[in-house]
Design a protein around this nucleic acid. Structure first.
Lengths: 207, 207
DNA sequence: CTTTCTTTGTGCAAACTTTGACAAAGGTCG
DNA sequence: CGACCTTTGTCAAAGTTTGCACAAAGAAAG
């Protein structure tokens, strides 16, 4: 709880804690402890306490943490105590799965628009109330509406150009599903999801 | 290059290096350097050299790295100089996208079978040559065929039971897309992919 | 009310990870 | 062929992250 920036590795664990708390709520639990959370997540209890201590004091000695209270605080810290509009680029199989994913709404995100470059996808209603738009209008629309987050679900060769368009139009955070490392200037944040990368990490240990 | 285990954080970067090398090949490049790779990946050149030094000497001073040679070595280190059969559980939108994903084959993976519990999906051909099987036969089939890797693409509440079935049947590595932290015994490896977790990591910085 | 038990938040030490710097090796060019 | 340039692999230092251990706070039980 000082004024130095919180380490990114700590920030990255907060959504995991938040997810675990929301899960505990579905079990109608009201109180938990760093010990219980750690056991569930495979993390030491000391680490959880230390991570949380960067942001304040949320627990009660002898008792633990009030689940709703800690959940509310984590949502605020992560700025998901509001809804974020996210623009999705790519209406292929993956884009389809993301547009239909029911898990975003409860966690702070709303797919606000979908873009693709393929003529036979543009104009189609990918999901109730969401019509695929032409990617040539992407820049204009992003500037107009002011979206700050985007999910890139296009083929590898188009990912960097799409990212450039988005950044130029004011998007500040990217979630990239294309199997390529995006190059971005400082000030823009990117997260990468590539199933083959994860699988290859696993095969290392399969001897 | 000693006999201590290589840090997991280093192992986790190798698939990124491999992906970058494969990409350079598409640009018909033959030689690269730790400097160039680092610039592309946003990693320091020293770190790349250090990471690779855990496994041997792959470069040539004054020149850099032969792309094909380093790529072949990384594939061997990661055990993707062979094809891995992967079993996929869940034939919803996400399962569909994964079963149709063209990116696995070139990187060492083949979706060998798909399982679901829903009557209206079982028996359907999800992709050319891949018919959705009934999840009640999962354990039996895994034991029979000896699959070692699985991708879990089922709803959160079914992920842990499915994981338990898989592990009991001999699967050693899991890639979990369900929004829940799986509890697994030591000896089993899991990687988690949850888009909302990544998006929440990003929103922290969007103030 | 006192003892005992639980659990937090934190100071410190240990463990781990990244970076800087440079000798050695090899290439290039006049 | 000699001077100069490039780039590796590695050592040591710096920086970061984790875990231990414990005082303090609170709950529970008698």
């Amino acid at each position: 709880m000082d004024n130095k920036p919180v380490p990114d590795i700590v920030v990255g664990r907060l959504p995991i804690y938040l997810r675990a708390l929301t899960f505990l709520k579905t079990e109608h639990r009201e109180i938990t402890s760093s010990q219980e959370l750690g056991d569930r997540l495979g993390i030491s209890s000391a680490q959880i306490r230390k991570d949380l201590s960067h942001f304040g004091e949320f627990g009660k000695q002898g008792t633990g943490y009030d689940i709703r209270h800690l959940e509310a605080n984590l949502k605020q810290i992560l700025h998901v105590d509001r809804m974020w509009d996210v623009v999705l680029i790519g209406a292929g199989d993956l884009g389809h799965a993301l547009a239909n994913y029911r898990g975003f709404a409860g966690r702070g995100f709303h797919i606000a628009a979908v873009f693709d470059k393929s003529g036979d996808k543009i104009g189609r209603e990918i999901v109730e109330g969401l019509v695929v738009e032409d990617v040539v209008t992407l820049s204009e629309r992003v500037k107009q509406v002011g979206w700050k987050m985007a999910i890139i679900a296009v083929p590898a060769e188009e990912a960097q150009p799409v990212a450039n368009t988005l950044m130029e139009a004011g998007v500040k955070a990217l979630l990239n599903y294309a199997p390529i490392s995006l190059m971005v200037p400082s000030g823009i944040r990117v997260e990468h999801i590539d199933p083959a990368v994860h699988l290859q990490h696993l095969t290392y240990y399969l001897g």
